[in-house]
């Protein structure tokens, strides 16, 4: 059925930390790998080694430059995949019932054997989360690795979406955003997580954590400040060495600049 469930028991989704993401695209590659070998039709490529390569991806990393009113511009890497919206417009437009949102955990999926490849769900999605596979003629989208998160054949540590598992920076978090006490919900509350395109009325489950405010580098300029001596009244061998060096030409004790230390 392409009507949306009234409520879902859980709201499984991702929290993506834009402060931490380094833009390495490891999540893109691991997603392509896992989802080519597992759930549904493989993610095909066209002209992969030719002049104009193109392919199906469920997760893509954009990069944006943000220019504040004053100060230096900031670069933000921005991974984007399906946001598993509560009010998913891609589901209700589907004419065949291939697209659906699961009542138990809120994951939005495509039943590929029912998909006629009309593409209307991709038209309805504001985020570009759905891509038609050119080889298979069916719609592909992020499954939140539904074949990993409940998979008892995998070690427990691997039972999370492969993009989260692989992220070397820890910029991606997976959990139940419907439970206010879950780690991901706490993170969203603490860091002021935001919805993408809230005016589209899709109520996305995935949240984005905005970058933290940058440190001010101050007015030190190109070079590090010269270091002052740490100890003013050194004794023993170091004291003797200090005085002996000061007596050399150019030193603090020499006639030419005796006012400096």
């Amino acid at each position: 059925m392409t009507t949306l469930p009234e409520t879902t028991d859980k709201k499984l989704g991702l929290v993506i930390d834009l402060d931490t993401c380094v833009g390495c695209h490891a999540c893109v590659i691991s997603c392509k790998g896992w989802n080519t070998e597992n759930y549904g039709a493989p993610l095909s490529d066209q002209d992969a080694w030719g002049a104009s390569p193109s392919g199906t991806f469920l997760n893509r990393v954009h990069s944006y430059e943000i220019q504040p009113e004053a100060g230096a511009a900031q670069l933000v890497h921005f991974p984007k995949s399906c946001l598993h919206c509560e009010d998913a417009p891609c589901v209700t437009v589907c004419p065949t019932g291939a697209s659906y949102k699961r009542a138990e955990d809120g994951i939005v999926l495509v039943n590929e054997s029912h998909c006629i490849g009309c593409g209307l769900c991709a038209w309805a999605c504001p985020y570009g989360a759905r891509e038609m596979d050119h080889a298979e003629g069916v719609m592909k989208k992020c499954t939140l690795c539904v074949d990993r998160i409940y998979n008892e054949n995998l070690p427990e540590i691997d039972r999370e979406p492969v993009c989260v598992r692989t992220c070397p920076a820890g910029a991606r978090h997976f959990g139940d955003l419907g439970d206010p006490d879950s780690a991901v919900s706490q993170l969203v509350a603490e860091r002021g997580g935001v919805d993408l395109m809230p005016e589209q009325g899709t109520k996305p489950v995935n949240k984005y954590l905005p970058p933290r405010q940058k440190d001010e580098l101050g007015t030190t300029g190109m070079h590090a400040p010269r270091l002052d001596p740490v100890i003013e009244d050194a004794g023993g061998f170091l004291g003797w060495l200090d005085k002996a060096l000061d007596r050399l030409p150019g030193g603090a004790g020499s006639a030419s600049d005796s006012e400096t230390r």
Partner: peptide, 12 residues
């Protein structure tokens, strides 16, 4: 992008 609070956003 949800990044408008920081400044003007440009696709890099």
């Amino acid at each position: 992008t949800g990044l408008g609070d920081i400044g003007a956003v440009r696709a890099f």
